[in-house]
Deep mutational scan, measured.
Amino acid sequence: RYTFRTRGPEQMKRVVEWARRQNLSYRVEVHGDEYIIHAE
C-alpha cells in the first residue's frame, strides 16, 4: 500500500503510469494543486 503526494498533473501522471505497470489499483484525490495518489 502506497501513498504519494505530488504537485501538478505531470508528476501525478508519472505516478499513475508506475502504478499501472505494477498492476496496482489506485485512486487519486485532488486538493487544490496537490494530488494524493493511493495505490495498492
Rank of each mutant, 00 (worst) to 15 (best):
R20K: 14
P9D: 12
Q22A: 10
E10G: 07
Q11M: 13
I37N: 00
E34S: 08
N23M: 09
R7F: 10
S25K: 13
R7V: 09
E17C: 10
H38V: 13
Y2Q: 04
E10P: 13
G32I: 04
Y2S: 03
W18K: 00
M12D: 00
E10S: 08
A19W: 02
A39F: 15
T3A: 04
T6G: 05
R1A: 09
S25E: 09
S25Q: 12
S25R: 13
M12W: 05
I36G: 00
R21F: 06
I37L: 04
V15K: 02
V15H: 03
E29Y: 12
Y35K: 02
P9T: 13
V15C: 11
E29V: 10
T6D: 01
T3F: 09
E34I: 14
R1E: 06
H31V: 14
E40K: 08
G32S: 04
Y35G: 02
R21Y: 06
Q22L: 14
I37D: 00
H38I: 14
E40Q: 12
E29Q: 07
V15M: 06
Q11W: 06
H38A: 03
G8K: 15
R21W: 05
Y2W: 14
Y35E: 01
L24A: 02
I37T: 00
P9Q: 13
R7A: 07
W18G: 00
P9F: 15
G8V: 15
M12S: 03
E10Q: 10
S25T: 13
V30Q: 14
Y26T: 09
K13S: 08
F4H: 01
H38S: 06
E40T: 11
L24N: 00
I37P: 00
V16F: 04
D33K: 08
E10R: 09
P9E: 15
G32E: 08
W18H: 02
T6V: 15
H31D: 13
R1Y: 11
A19T: 03
E29P: 00
R20A: 08
N23H: 11
R7S: 10
E40W: 15
R5V: 13
E34R: 06
V16N: 01
H38M: 09
V28D: 00
R1M: 09
G8N: 15
R20H: 06
E29T: 09
L24R: 03
R1F: 09
I36M: 04
K13L: 14
E34A: 06
H38L: 09
R5L: 07
E10D: 11
V16R: 02
R7Q: 09
Q11S: 11
L24F: 10
E17T: 06
Y26G: 00
R5I: 14
Q22Y: 13
D33M: 08
A39M: 15
R5Q: 04
N23C: 11
W18D: 01
K13W: 13
R1P: 10
Q11A: 14
Q11R: 08
F4M: 03
T3Q: 06
T3W: 06
E29R: 05
G32Q: 06
Y2L: 09
S25L: 12
R14G: 04
W18A: 01
E34Y: 14
R27I: 13
P9G: 09
H38Y: 15
R20P: 01
N23D: 05
T6P: 04
F4C: 11
R21D: 07
H31I: 14
Y2F: 12
K13C: 13
G8L: 15
H31L: 12
Q11E: 13
I36N: 01
Y26D: 01
E10M: 09
E10I: 09
E17L: 09
E40F: 15
R1V: 12
Y26P: 03
H31M: 12
Y26L: 08
A39V: 15
Y2P: 02
E10Y: 08
T6E: 03
N23E: 06
E10V: 08
R5S: 05
R1S: 12
R1L: 08
E17V: 05
D33E: 11
Y2T: 04
E29S: 07
R5F: 10
Y35A: 05
V16D: 02
G8P: 01
E40G: 13
